[in-house]
Simulated assay, not measured.
Amino acid sequence: MTSRPAPEPAIATSWSGGVAEIRIGDGSRRNALPGRAWSQLAHQVVELGADSSLRVLVIRGHGDTFCAGSNMTDWVDADSGYVEESFAHMEAAFTAIEDCPVPVIAEIRGVAAGAGCQLALACDLRFMADSARIGMPIARLGILASPAFAARMVALAGPAAARELLYTGRLVDARTAVDLGLADDSVPEEHLAARTSNLAAAVAEQPPAAIRAAKLAVAAALAPQREAAAANPRPAVARSDFDRAIAAFLGQRSAAAAVPPAAP
């Protein structure tokens, strides 16, 4: 009997010198994560940040995509408490990244959507493959944009762009993301890993105390926005719209999976 390979972990960590890497997902569902994996991510970032040898943290997705947000099958028949808890786990992961004492770089392939977009925006720098897209297509799912979600977009792209992207759910390409301020660079996909590695190495060569101080200084400048967002908690979803949207989305996926492939 042939044994099956062990499944990839939802959150995997590796080190190279003073640079740590977190890989998101296992390659399935475009690396969308269930609530427990967001909690695992928060824990992993805090643990890495506590290591004095850490200089830079890189976050990338498994395979050819970054993160499509949350795994919606996790919410089928879930009660409101569980759904709200899932969003709290996501926000804890984003906050852990923002509070990590060293620079965090997002390397984005494929798509960074919904919670995946927020994951990228919580990082200090974002490099995107020129074929990648980013955005917050959450309104159609009955998900209510939180003040914290909006604050991250406003801080990078300004209120006008944040409104348009949140109202329409539009995903923007890498070049547009750079123009809006949502990404720092658009790179041909075959050069993306090198772009990330080179920047991580350049940061790692700087005096650690100076880099950590720089991150704290930027965080202090953004503190009023973050504090205002945290002071205005709201429900995560409009429940009836959310339930209908989840059922419709998963129904469409099931129907698509049932269609036999075309003959070559």
Rank of each mutant, 00 (worst) to 15 (best):
P101A: 10
P101F: 10
P103T: 08
V104D: 07
I105R: 07
A106Q: 11
A106E: 06
A106S: 13
V111H: 01
V111F: 06
V111T: 14
A112Y: 00
A112R: 03
G114K: 01
G114R: 09
G114Q: 06
A115K: 09
G116L: 07
G116P: 02
G116V: 06
C117H: 04
L119M: 05
L119P: 00
A120F: 01
L121C: 08
A122M: 04
A122Q: 01
A122S: 15
C123K: 02
L125N: 00
L125E: 14
F127Q: 02
A129G: 12
A129R: 06
A129P: 03
D130W: 04
S131E: 14
A132Y: 05
R133V: 15
R133H: 13
I134V: 12
I134R: 00
G135V: 01
G135Q: 05
P137N: 12
I138A: 12
A139N: 14
L141H: 05
L141A: 02
G142T: 06
G142Y: 03
I143P: 02
I143F: 06
I143N: 02
L144Y: 03
A145E: 04
A145V: 09
S146R: 12
P147Q: 07
P147H: 06
P147D: 05
A148N: 02
A148R: 06
F149S: 12
A150M: 09
A150T: 14
A151G: 09
R152Q: 15
R152T: 01
A155P: 00
L156M: 12
A157N: 03
A157L: 06
A157K: 03
P159R: 07
P159I: 02
R163W: 10
R163N: 13
R163K: 13
E164K: 05
L165H: 07
L165M: 13
L166Y: 05
T168S: 15
V172P: 08
V172K: 11
A174Q: 09
R175E: 13
T176L: 11
T176R: 13
A177D: 00
A177R: 03
V178C: 13
V178H: 03
D179A: 15
D179H: 09
D179F: 07
L180Y: 05
G181L: 10
G181A: 10
L182G: 08
L182V: 11
A183R: 03
D184Q: 00
D185T: 09
D185Y: 05
S186I: 09
V187C: 09
V187T: 14
E189W: 00
E189A: 08
E189P: 02
E190T: 04
A193L: 05
A194S: 13
A194Q: 15
A194G: 02
R195E: 08
R195Q: 11
T196V: 15
S197A: 15
S197W: 11
S197T: 14
L199T: 15
L199Q: 10
A200N: 05
A200Q: 08
A201S: 14
A201V: 07
A201K: 12
A201M: 09
A202Y: 00
V203I: 15
V203M: 11
A204N: 12
E205A: 15
Q206G: 08
Q206K: 12
A210Q: 11
A210I: 04
R212D: 00
A213H: 11
A213N: 06
A214R: 13
K215E: 10
A217R: 13
A217Y: 10
V218P: 00
V218F: 09
A219S: 15
A220S: 14
L222V: 02
L222H: 10
A223D: 12
A223P: 00
A223Q: 14
